[in-house]
């Protein structure tokens, strides 16, 4: 993936912030998130439940649900500023330039519409110039491409007649049929068996290979990120706390949170340890983010450094090392050495 580094930028997100106002209190679920996705790149976004991954994704698509609101930031898809678009223009863009693969295709597909018609709806909406007569062939073609067995039969079926893996394939088909520049996949394999998971991941890799589609891959599984992503963004409490090439981040994490996430993966092979490494405590409340570092409460590094005041009084910046890695920790770099395993 060397060419990726020099490839043009497809998505550029700057200082994105999303707030949910609930009964007087305001929860800043996404707080100053910025990143880029280049052409043909697969970028992973990982983090604990509630860290703001899905809300970020919804904000990119212009679909933040009420009472949520994008309060700051800019999202540029190639040279279009999405914030400046009308709802209608945004809707046109979705599907054609930017598509979503949901985590639970079974729930996202319309239960009373046949598979063929559902895939066809996207074509009708976004490719009206395609003659009606050519649609069926096009639908079969895309379903064949995502590896759905016997597509001629499947198009006449309803979603519930398909297995979870097949439903997910249909969702991928709907996402990629118009050849979008960017595919956003929110936990596309979490609900699936490992064997089916492997099939879908292979499919995403194939799509990237064939069409050069960029993929933003949201998950909480570091092992999957390590396999298929080029770069990774680690989210914690509404912010990116670390980002960089997958291999670097996974082998030498710069941020203590990333380190902790990696340590919590149960090892496979050999004699299993007596106990697994865990992250104590729970993430802070989005309605009242702590003043200093949001991870301070749970941070092993801070403890090992003798609980310096700086961590709880001053919020660390997402500092760049100039070589494509960023980390939001006052003591970046100490993480790798200080944590003894």
């Amino acid at each position: 993936m060397n060419d990726v580094k020099t490839a043009e930028t497809v998505l550029r997100v700057r200082d994105l912030a999303v707030e949910f106002s609930l009964r007087g209190s305001v929860a800043r679920a996404v707080d100053g998130v910025g990143f880029e996705v280049r052409a043909g790149e697969i970028v992973g976004m990982v983090g604990e439940s509630g860290s703001g991954k899905s809300v970020t994704m919804l904000a990119l698509l212009g679909l933040v649900p009420r009472p949520g609101r994008v309060v700051a930031g800019s999202v540029r898809l190639r040279d279009i500023e999405l914030g400046a678009l009308s709802l209608r223009e945004l809707a046109r863009l979705r599907g054609r330039q930017m598509a979503l693969i949901p985590s639970d295709a079974g729930a996202a597909l319309n239960p009373v519409t046949r598979i063929g018609s559902q895939v066809g709806e996207g074509l009708a909406a976004h490719l009206p110039e395609l003659p009606r007569a050519e649609r069926p062939a096009r639908i079969l073609d895309i379903l064949k491409r995502v590896g759905l067995p016997r597509p001629e039969q499947q198009v006449r079926r309803y979603p519930h007649e398909l297995s979870g893996g097949m439903q997910q394939r249909v969702a991928v088909a709907m996402g990629v049929q118009l050849g979008p520049d960017l595919l956003i996949a929110d936990e596309p394999t979490t609900a699936l068996d490992v064997t089916i998971q492997a099939q879908i991941l292979q499919l995403l890799l194939d799509v990237r290979e064939q069409s050069g589609t960029s993929i933003l891959f949201i998950t909480h599984d570091m092992t999957t990120v390590a396999e298929i992503c080029d770069r990774v963004l680690v989210m914690y409490a509404g912010q990116i706390v670390e980002s960089g090439p997958v291999v670097d981040v996974c082998t030498a994490p710069a941020h203590p949170y990333t380190r902790a996430l990696l340590d919590a993966i149960p090892p496979l092979g050999g004699d299993p340890p007596e106990r697994l490494t865990t992250i104590p405590g729970a993430p802070p409340d989005p309605r009242a983010w702590p003043a200093g570092c949001r991870f301070a409460e749970r941070c092993r590094l801070r403890e090992q450094l003798g609980n310096p005041d700086k961590c709880t009084s001053l919020a660390p910046e997402l500092a760049s090392d100039g070589a494509g890695r960023r980390s939001r920790c006052h003591f970046t770099g100490s993480a790798a050495e200080a944590v003894v395993r």
């Binding site: 609930l22 009964r23 439940s49 509630g50 899905s54 809300v55 994704m57 919804l58 698509l61 679909l63 649900p65 809707a91 979705r94 599907g95 979503l100 949901p102 985590s103 639970d104 729930a107 996202a108 319309n110 929110d186």
Partner: peptide, 19 residues
């Protein structure tokens, strides 16, 4: 697309006590 998004935010949110 609309229907897909509705299911994305599946985690139960703490229900705000309404007036």
């Amino acid at each position: 697309m609309k229907t897909q998004v509705a299911v994305l935010v599946t985690e139960p949110r703490p229900a705000a006590r309404r007036r």
